[in-house]
Write a protein that binds this DNA or RNA. Structure first.
Lengths: 200, 200
DNA sequence: GCCATAAAAGCACGACCGTTCGGCCGCCGC
DNA sequence: GCGGCGGCCGAACGGTCGTGCTTTTATGGC
């Protein structure tokens, strides 16, 4: 890895951290340069524009998400355990991956009405995650861990809701029981999907 | 209502709309002045600082929330119907109250790490809403519509999750079935709370 | 150890930021 | 009908924004 490449990685690391505190839009070249001990122009030389920087920050975070959430998840046993693994890692990702809030959650509400490459990248990442999640849940159905009438997309929707509620309670309200509540909600969600030899 | 007061209301209306598009932090005096056809200084004269403006925008939106969600809700019959009314109005508030996203959701992730009056006001509003919601759910328990072992705070947490998932799916992903999914999730949540003469 | 090249710095730009201040205009009570 | 005053404006402040240049400094292959 050349010098330029390594500084760029360092920049993106710092940018991710900063963006989690002030938002992807609140991120400025000046403060980022100060944080990385570079001059504004020295830093800027690594990117074509601010928008390009923002997009690359998202991609950088996405790579990390793949490493610490997705990859270990698919290593877990198929079916419900894998769903559980995903949930566990997702929750802990939100708590530990950033100094501030999860940049995907933050950026989602910041850019949901602002057309552009940032929004596009955000949608791409979300669609990707949703697709993987749906697949994992579908497997839990085909393995017989979940009932046949469980709709994976609906399950994914509700799971995302729990994770968002967790983020909200934890970051804004500083609710110490946020994680415990999330786990309870998850258990309730899963329980409702188990085949209890009840109906057809 | 004096002249100054009416212009101030007009400013706050426009500011709410604008903030729902670009975020409360993305709101600038210049663009807001242009939108209201006032000069920067003429507009600024109504507020002590930008932070004060942001806080008052939140309070303004909170008043509207009280009018179109809270007040009609408490007019509904006690118990489950009232819970349902709250949910319905909350969902439709998110869809119709703003041109962009719900400013409370947007601002929550934008300011969750930025100490100050804006964050304080945000927490105050959320705590208020959560308290009312918990009360409403508690009533559904004491009315016998929900089981005795239903935890109102946990219910409120999960309900908030559904609403957040709805906002996310609708605004970022532009999922046309977002509302339908939210309703299904809500029904599942309520169903799980009904007394089915099952256990102790 | 030299030299081509990559990386970072220095400097400057136009635009816009939040904020202040002095002054103009039209509405009110007298 | 005149004086005072609230409401709004124009101009300007020091700063910071994103973005270009041109120059200096560091790096790595020979």
């Amino acid at each position: 890895m050349g010098k330029g490449e390594s500084t760029k990685t360092a920049i993106l690391d710092e940018a991710t951290e900063l963006a989690s505190l002030v938002g992807l839009g609140g991120l400025t070249i000046g403060t980022l340069a100060a944080a990385t001990k570079l001059s504004k122009s020295g830093l800027y030389a690594h990117f074509a524009s601010k928008e390009a920087l923002q997009v690359q920050v998202l991609q950088h975070a996405r790579d990390r998400f793949t490493d610490v959430v997705m990859r270990p998840t698919v290593a877990a046993p198929r079916g419900e355990p894998r769903v559980r693994e995903f949930f566990d890692r997702w929750i802990s990702w939100q708590s530990t991956a950033f100094g501030g809030g999860c940049i995907f959650v933050d950026a989602a509400s910041e850019f949901d009405d602002q057309e552009g490459q940032v929004r596009d990248e955000l949608v791409r990442a979300e669609r990707d995650k949703l697709e993987s999640l749906t697949l994992i849940i579908g497997t839990a159905v085909s393995e017989g861990h979940f009932r046949e009438d469980v709709d994976p997309e609906q399950f994914a929707y509700e799971l995302e809701g729990i994770v968002l509620a967790h983020h909200h309670a934890r970051r804004l309200m500083r609710d110490g029981r946020a994680e415990e509540r999330a786990r309870r909600a998850f258990d309730r969600l899963v329980d409702g999907c188990r085949p209890i030899a009840r109906s057809a």
